[in-house]
């Protein structure tokens, strides 16, 4: 049960957004699944079951879910560390995520890599590497193939306000711009890159202005409003499909936890944090569903929450009952 909220932040409905009731509820489902899965991972972390670091997207769930939900069959997506929600929308199972974090043999990389570093080409999911920015040129390459073969598809990936400072960001974006590739780059501006404020990453207020330098369309969207994110991504996708070239979508949001679980983020001003806590994307969306009578009663949402808890308990059981990988696989699969 969500606590009653005192916030007056509301979910504005984008004009002309087409989304049926099932869709509206699915957005809630994926955002809540995103959050509760991370909470469950937090528990596993404190129980020393997570082997490496743990990263949270608390407060940014609308960015992941809204963008991924706009994609179509055959589109490609590549997540960054805070895009667990995107993976869930694209069909990744919580068990996969838990087994991966807990380094188990049934994890998608069988224990070879960590967190969201996994993918399946045949499912349109590209595994990131830790090096921020590196995905952008790679996704441009996938978009290039789509263009070469006249496919009616697009690629979508993410970059942080910090990751935008890399060479790969520049080269990848420029390449995509020059070749008018069907690529959406979601810039998740959560104001912080580890302990570094966005003002020390970029000498501009809005990161979306950079789009112009690459001959791309840039747009700013409220990253805490899942409907606005969905709508902006859908329009970006349509633009890509009509040959309009890449789109840079700056989602304004905020990283509510530290860089990772070990970081208490003491460097973030308390007032800034408090301001953003009032704009919780899930609380706001829940109120939207109730106020607009998309659900008959709050009980309906509670039922979704309860269903999620059950799914996650089963997933945790499955992940934790799986063995660690056999050492013999350490040397497998270096080459095809």
């Amino acid at each position: 049960m969500a606590k009653p909220s005192t916030s007056d932040y509301t979910v504005a409905v984008p004009e002309g957004l087409e989304l049926d009731r099932t869709g509206r509820l699915e957005l809630y489902y994926f955002m809540a699944l995103n959050r509760k899965l991370e909470e469950r991972l937090g528990l596993l972390y404190r129980q020393n079951k997570v082997v490496g670091g743990l990263y949270s997207s608390l407060g940014q769930e609308a960015c992941s879910v809204g963008t991924a939900y706009a994609l179509g069959h055959g589109d490609f997506l590549a997540p960054m560390i805070r895009n667990l929600g995107s993976l869930l929308v694209r069909g990744v199972r919580p068990t996969d995520v838990m087994a991966q974090y807990c380094a188990r043999a049934i994890g998608p990389t069988r224990g070879k890599d960590l967190n969201v570093h996994f993918g399946w080409v045949e499912r349109g999911l590209i595994a990131p590497i830790s090096v921020v920015g590196a995905l952008i040129p790679v996704m441009a390459g996938i978009a290039l193939e789509m263009k070469m073969h006249g496919k009616k598809n697009i690629v979508l990936t993410y970059i942080g306000d910090g990751g935008m400072s890399t060479t790969d960001f520049h080269e990848g974006m420029n390449f995509a711009g020059v070749h008018k590739l069907p690529m959406i780059l979601v810039v998740e501006n959560n104001l912080w890159a580890y302990s570094t404020h966005v003002s020390k990453q970029a000498n501009v207020k809005d990161l979306a202005v950079r789009a112009e330098g690459y001959g791309c369309y840039g747009e700013i969207v409220d990253g805490n409003n899942v409907l606005a994110v969905l709508d902006a991504t859908r329009r970006a996708r349509a633009r890509c499909l009509s040959g309009g070239g890449p789109v840079m979508l700056e989602a304004k949001t905020f990283r509510r936890k530290g860089h990772a679980e070990h970081d208490d983020a003491g460097y973030v001003p308390a007032a800034e944090r408090a301001e953003w806590e009032k704009k919780d994307p899930i609380d706001a969306y829940r109120r939207f569903l109730i106020d607009r009578r998309i659900v008959d009663s709050p009980d309906e949402i509670d039922e979704i929450d309860a269903k999620i808890v059950a799914i996650l308990e089963a997933a945790a059981d499955e992940a934790l009952s799986a063995p660690f990988p056999d050492p013999s696989i350490a040397t497998e699969n270096v080459y095809g």
């Binding site: 224990g111 070879k112 990988p325 350490a330």
Partner: peptide, 16 residues
Amino acid sequence: PPDTPVPYSPPLEEAF
């Protein structure tokens, strides 16, 4: 270590 990337899971890293 063998000619592989550094694996994550403890038994794999120990073998590496």
